[in-house]
Design a protein around this nucleic acid. Structure first.
Length: 285
DNA sequence: CGGTTACCCTGGATGC
DNA sequence: TGCATCCAGGGTAACC
């Protein structure tokens, strides 16, 4: 479910309630999502801990605690999310943060249980974990760094953009939207992009993600909602994702849905007219 | 090392 | 209505 804009929206929602509050009790309803710690040890460590702040790293949510209580890192993956209101599906509650003064509860729900929760003793330990699985954040990476990373691989530009070790935060929806805005075919070999194309791609990443954050992310079906249960508005005004057979908003060409190598089963949407591979560049096969 | 695939889970939509 | 099948916003381990 959540990509960078959805996770950023969650974090902003959590910032309204968590920082400065104490955890009267952390309730672990599903211990199977814990990584590297047991429910009893985590619950014991969190009793009475005060939240210093909430931040985002790629698609990960970071809850930092005061007084050397460490950091809780939550990876929502496909269906994880936070609720400040009573969750619509209580059977999906995996964690409950019971707060003090005044009493309140923040719920973490995850229908498919693909998400992960970890605890790190300090910021340095968390940083080591981040760097092991993630590249620079998609909103932080500079153009030169992006250019170097793209030059390193010949695989398709879309799988490269979705590789969290290349840059962190972009998933299936925003990869398609970013490539459409840049006029790039998703299977263009990453290393074949010109410096001008990389510059435009770099700008498009920032613009698409910023717009999606403004609109509080992308909602469809029973998936992602804000912490208040509201739908994100991005998919009401996007260009290609989920719009097979519709006309391209910039050239009116047909939007196609395909499956490409390196992304297993995930769908890719692109405009067949304004996102083409130049004939002098061979398409990977 | 670079790239690809199987698999982890469950719920909702669709088709028969 | 009931059941089977397919699909999904992510990520990792194992493999070639």
């Amino acid at each position: 479910m959540p990509e960078l804009p959805e996770v950023e929206t969650m974090v902003r929602g959590l910032r309204g309630v968590l920082p400065g509050r104490s955890l009267r009790r952390l309730e672990v309803r599903d211990p199977s999502l814990l990584q590297g710690c047991t429910a009893t040890s985590l619950v014991r460590r969190m009793r009475g801990a005060k939240v210093a702040g909430v931040s985002r790293r790629g698609k990960w949510v970071v809850v930092e605690l005061e007084d050397n209580r460490g950091l809780i890192v939550i990876q929502p993956r496909m269906t994880g999310g936070f609720w400040l209101i009573e969750p619509a599906r209580p059977e999906h509650i995996r964690l409950a943060f019971h707060l003090d003064k005044p009493e309140a509860t923040v719920w973490y729900c995850d229908a498919r249980r693909l998400g992960k929760v970890s605890w790190y003793r300090d910021a340095e330990a968390a940083e080591i974990a981040f760097c092991r699985s993630q590249g620079p954040d998609a909103l932080q990476i500079d153009r030169e760094d992006l250019a170097e990373r793209l030059a390193r691989t010949s695989r398709g530009i879309k799988p490269t953009l979705m590789d969290q070790k290349v840059l962190a935060g972009i998933g299936n929806i925003y990869a398609d939207e970013t490539l459409h805005r840049t006029g790039l075919h998703p299977e263009r070999p990453s290393s074949s992009l010109s410096l001008d194309e990389i510059a435009r791609l770099h700008s498009a990443i920032g613009e698409v993600l910023a717009r999606a954050i403004e609109l509080e992310g992308s909602s469809f079906d029973a998936g992602y909602r804000t912490v208040l249960g509201l739908e994100g508005g991005f998919l009401a005004q996007n260009s290609v994702y989920g719009r097979e057979h519709q006309p391209c908003p910039s050239c009116a060409g047909p939007i196609r849905k395909i499956r490409i190598a390196g992304l297993i089963g995930r769908p890719t949407y692109y405009c067949a007219v304004c996102q083409v591979i130049p004939t002098r560049i061979s398409r990977p096969r």
